[in-house]
């Protein structure tokens, strides 16, 4: 799977194996802009990403609580997600995410 860091334009291709969520993948790889302060409890809002393209077979619906948190993040977009709510599944390899630049 690929993270594009908007601030620097850098593209990081990461291996998600061994992790439960994409927030964990990003934190482990020190992806700038992803902090994951609450560990995935949906209380911090520090794991916001834009999903650029979703591979076939990858689904993860937004819960009500996720929608709620997404109302307050910087640079919201139609593809906005909390990376802690995106599970690592076998279909994850083709996922492309963008980390919006800090405002």
């Amino acid at each position: 799977m690929t993270f594009t860091v908007e601030e620097t334009g850098r593209e990081l291709v990461l291996d998600a194996s061994g992790h439960a969520t994409l927030m964990q993948v990003a934190v482990e790889a020190d992806v700038p802009g992803i902090v994951g302060e609450c560990g995935g409890e949906m209380t911090c809002g520090t794991c916001h990403v834009h999903v650029e393209s979703t591979p076939a077979g990858y689904t993860a619906a937004r819960s009500h609580d996720e929608e709620d948190m997404l109302e307050v993040v910087d640079a919201p977009a139609p593809g906005s997600r909390l990376a802690c709510q995106l599970p690592v599944t076998p279909a994850v390899a083709g996922l492309r995410l963008r980390v919006p630049a800090p405002s």
């Binding site: 902090v35 302060e37 949906m42 209380t43 911090c44 809002g45 520090t46 916001h48 609580d65 709620d68 948190m69 109302e71 307050v72 993040v73 910087d74």
Partner: peptide, 12 residues
């Protein structure tokens, strides 16, 4: 607690 979390989140 859930309805309050976003108002105390880091971005806010």
């Amino acid at each position: 607690r859930r309805p309050m979390n976003k108002h105390f989140s880091v971005p806010v």
